[in-house]
Design a protein around this nucleic acid. Structure first.
Lengths: 236, 236
DNA sequence: TTATTTTTGTAATATTCCTTTAACAAGAAA
DNA sequence: TTTCTTGTTAAAGGAATATTACAAAAATAA
């Protein structure tokens, strides 16, 4: 049974809140937003079942650290992740000693944020075993790569991938929208010591396309980059 | 999630502020202007989320260096680029030791300024990965060359370029407004070992023009330089 | 172990797309 | 005009990629 997980997001920048909201919603989190420390505490009061709080440290007025301490005191079971800008490294320690469970350094990718939240949820033991496994994963478009059991889903549908195919799609999704040369793929998936023709990449790409593309003759996820290699287009 | 990046521009000359404003806006920066040091500090006070400050050094009253030091002290995470006039080279050291992150020597081209800002933003790590990718790009007039996924846009519209065409336009834009001989182009795009007629350059230029010029019969971006080669005119 | 299945690499062929060549036209300079 | 440079076009040629079949190797099961 998949219970909805409520996440409180505190950041004064609209753009960042919006960025976080969109990405959390995509992963079925219920998002509660706050632009100020006061608002955050208010929202927490109203929603006792918040599981995770994402708190920006740098804020006008009551800052993220204050909010962190208050939340920790009032709701000891809540998971707290601090959002810190690079260069505020010192704040990490401050944040963690202030009762936070983890921190994410801006800029973070949606996938990193999701990964941190999922990791924290796992540590907090609020997940059922199924959910627990489900949350060790990469996401891209309709794909989910479960790093735990090495299974890949497309639209909740399991794909039957071979080890090489799994390696390729994982590498691609880790490098969304970046053109990768055959040799980069070879080094990553086959290892730097591999001796043999680079052409193996082509053949394996072909097999992978056969399995993941809606119309393998007109690939939309694995794009070819003439004279260079291939490029993953998750489309997020 | 393209969050707007606020840039503070301090220069006493209207013309220069205007020049910078126009070009920054073109690249989706939010521009905050100040004509005096006092005004700059005021504006900074009002806009805590300024990411980048462009400060002219030579100013009546509080000069750019003073402003730099104040900003650095009050807002340590802000990125500071000094604008120095040619001949004030000494100021470079002064500027950087005063806490600046970079400097640009006047007169500068819009593209140089944008490139410096983007490079600094990347160093500052304030960009989300997507933005970061977006900013690993070259700009020239309506063109954007994404170095990450090797795509070229003209007015946000993707162009379908072949590898050679991509190589040529990239080389051109890296050398905006500089006449390039056929052999320089050949060496860069085809490689120094290439054996064959230099004429391939002409033919490929022709095809590239076909794809990028509004009126290929009257090229405005790729200009011919009689008896020498070609020259890119981004028009910034 | 042996047998069976699955996965992977190789190689040959086909296909598509890109590059080069070459011949001619047009334009500029002498 | 004559000569040289550049632009245009078409077609040949070549290179990169896709596809396929088969064999080898590895993993799995009996």
């Amino acid at each position: 049974m998949i219970s909805v997980i409520k996440v409180l997001v505190l950041d004064d920048e609209d753009a960042i809140r919006s960025f976080i909201r969109v990405n959390l919603k995509r992963h079925n989190f219920f998002v509660i937003e706050a632009a100020t420390g006061e608002e955050a505490l208010e929202k927490a009061e109203q929603n006792k079942d918040i599981k995770i709080a994402l708190l920006d440290i740098m804020l006008p007025g009551i800052d993220g650290l204050e909010v962190c301490k208050c939340l920790r005191k009032e709701y000891p079971t809540i998971g707290i992740i601090m959002l810190t800008a690079k260069g505020q490294e010192d704040d990490k320690i401050t944040g963690l000693s202030g009762g936070a469970d983890d921190y994410v350094v801006k800029p973070f990718s949606p996938n990193e944020l999701i990964a941190r939240i999922n990791a924290l949820l796992r540590r907090m033991n609020v997940l059922s075993p199924q959910e627990n496994t489900q949350r060790k994963a990469l996401f891209s478009g309709p794909f989910m790569v479960n790093l735990d059991n090495r299974k890949v889903l497309k639209n909740e549908q399991e794909l039957e991938l071979t080890p090489k195919e799994y390696g390729i799609i994982k590498f691609f999704i880790e490098n969304d929208n970046k053109a990768m040369s055959r040799n980069e793929i070879l080094d990553e998936v086959w290892g730097k010591n591999y001796v043999g023709d680079v052409k193996v990449v082509d053949v394996n790409i072909r097999r992978l396309r056969q399995k993941i593309e809606t119309d393998p003759a007109n690939p939309q996820f694995i794009e070819r980059v003439w004279g260079f290699g291939y490029c993953w287009r998750g489309g997020d």
